[in-house]
Design a protein around this nucleic acid. Structure first.
Lengths: 336, 336
DNA sequence: CTGAAAGCGCTTACAG
DNA sequence: CTGAAAGCGCTTACAG
């Protein structure tokens, strides 16, 4: 391995001078610089970042926690994070937590020993019990994609999920729907609250019996849950499903009963959902600005790293938008 | 930050002794060890891996290149790689290349400065032009999921994609199909060759006109390509599509023409494809053992790291398996 | 503008 | 079983 000393010897200077040329920090006489650069090229010198890290305390590496990478949502976040980091010269240590708090804690220890410059945590699933640990981490921490109550001790960039629910509710209200059902994940309570708020504003209540929570997101479970809802509430004119598997299940269930979308039943989803099939109507859905969120979160983290002020603590909410497709229409029998 | 020296002071020993306790390398008197461990616990000491890396030359970090993480195939590989690494105490530096050789080269430089202990490259897309660079990398390199000719200078664990094509061809032959078409990605030539080989064995040729290459994997493009094929070859009884978007497109196109699957046209896919819809028949497809492949590739890499022998150079091929679903049946008019 | 010295936190031989 | 010394490859003040 060729070292800075080798370059210095070759160029007839001290390693100090080589260091100055490489880092560009101090002014170096043009002729000297040229000699050094020539030596670097001839020897094929690459600076050793491990040594530099030990000397400076910065590793130019940040850690990213995501629950999984097998999800469009998080896969997109990972790529966006990597893009922003690359622009800033950082590298990415990826840790998936897999719904396993203990694994998350081990990863946290690993990142600490490795002296990452910062940590971004996407998703409020696994590290939630270890939040106190994060408070006295040796590096800045930022949060993103937090749906439940975000801790106010750490900066967080997230989506206004509740507003997403509100947009859906408002849309269905405008179409005259009164008897609606919700198919949701247990993590999506804020979405439900926003949805209900839109109805409550008009004095309409969405009863608990019309809300079905599906803990296990398999297509089969989603189909079954949707079928149950339709059977239990024959007067239903719309279904709001809080994420993709559920939406697909809901559409399949409606069609399987020989009812049509949206003439008999409107269906609304959330998240950027892939069309199921050309045979199905395009979906009305809420789009979450996940890439923008990831970008802002990383930028916030990087700012925290360079400033190294005391932990910045604030919350940033990005607004989702409603995309109206062909899966929603006026409520059957409503004079709209 | 609490250092090894702090622990030593507290325990009344030298940092050498602390180092021995932490690493477990040399024998330490039980009483001494207990004192050291107590000091570690009281002070909350965490070893600094950066310093250790500088001293030992090992960072306990490996790099992983994947074209993208927004794909079931690669997302699964990333998670499996991480699992194996975690078991071995390594961390993962993730680099997505995004069909950009220049980006890949920059990442390679970054990993070199950061002194990763090894590099795993999944997918033969972006770094292919930089293979010479890899030959004299400062760390072991292993390849996986290589579909085109693998370089014999590096160890590689991959899938026998050609055999996958053969399995599909054989299956369709057994069902009596003669007039078949192929919908493929430009990267999937080996699959086509295997497929053709199965037909050639019976003296049946799959003409070039029945092979359609789709460079751009959008649902719309896939649908259009499949429709073209069906129109150009009205006597078609089966379609082989080499990956998911294409298969979905093919099924939609068949159904859109009012023909049924598999009575009129059989459809076969490759890769572990998500069912499109309950309304469609379950798919006959070839399953690729991607997780097993990823695991073996990492294990190979780790072995290369610990042995640090001269680069091991061999190829390991995993066999895909055919999963027969409801999307294939006897060829229309064939007396099977 | 350039150099000599000390130090980042650990480990690796080598003595005792 | 434990210690004193040197070194991993870089940077950071401090002199000249």
């Amino acid at each position: 391995m060729v070292t800075m000393q080798d370059v210095a010897d070759r160029a007839g200077v001290t390693k100090m001078t080589v260091s100055n040329v490489v880092s560009g920090r101090a002014r170096v006489r043009p002729e000297t610089e040229a000699r050094v650069r020539a030596a670097i090229a001839e020897l094929g010198y690459t600076p050793n970042l491990v040594a530099r890290s030990l000397a400076t305390g910065s590793t130019m590496t940040i850690g990213l926690f995501v629950p999984t990478v097998c999800s469009w949502f998080y896969a997109d976040i990972v790529e966006e994070v990597e893009d922003v980091l690359e622009e800033a010269g950082y590298h990415l240590l990826l840790c998936t937590t897999r719904l396993d708090g203990e694994r998350a804690r081990r990863h946290l220890a690993g990142l600490t020993s490795r002296s990452v410059d910062g940590l971004l945590i996407a998703g409020d699933r696994d590290l939630i019990d270890h939040l106190p640990l994060l408070a006295d981490a040796r590096f800045p921490v930022a949060l993103c994609a937090w749906e439940t109550d975000a801790p106010d001790t750490l900066p967080v960039v997230t989506i206004d999920y509740e507003h997403g629910g509100l947009l859906v509710g408002r849309h269905l209200r405008e179409l005259g729907h009164e008897h609606v059902a919700v198919l949701m994940s247990p993590d999506h309570v804020p979405r439900l609250e926003g949805f209900r708020r839109a109805f409550a504003k008009d004095g309409v209540t969405v009863p608990d019996s019309a809300v079905h929570t599906v803990p296990d997101p398999t297509p089969a479970a989603a189909f079954a849950a949707a079928s149950d809802l339709l059977a239990a509430h024959p007067d239903l004119t719309a279904i709001f499903a809080t994420y993709d598997v559920l939406v697909h299940g809901a559409m399949e269930a409606v069609l399987a009963q020989g009812r049509s979308i949206p003439q008999d039943v409107s269906v609304v989803g959330q998240g950027d959902i892939v069309p199921v099939s050309r045979a199905h109507p395009s979906l009305t859905t809420v789009s979450f600005p996940r890439r923008a969120m990831a970008r802002q979160a990383v930028e916030l983290l990087l700012r925290g790293i360079s400033n190294d002020e005391s932990p910045i603590s604030f919350i940033q909410m990005l607004r989702p938008t409603l995309i109206v497709g062909e899966s929603t229409g006026p409520a059957r029998g409503a004079g709209v």
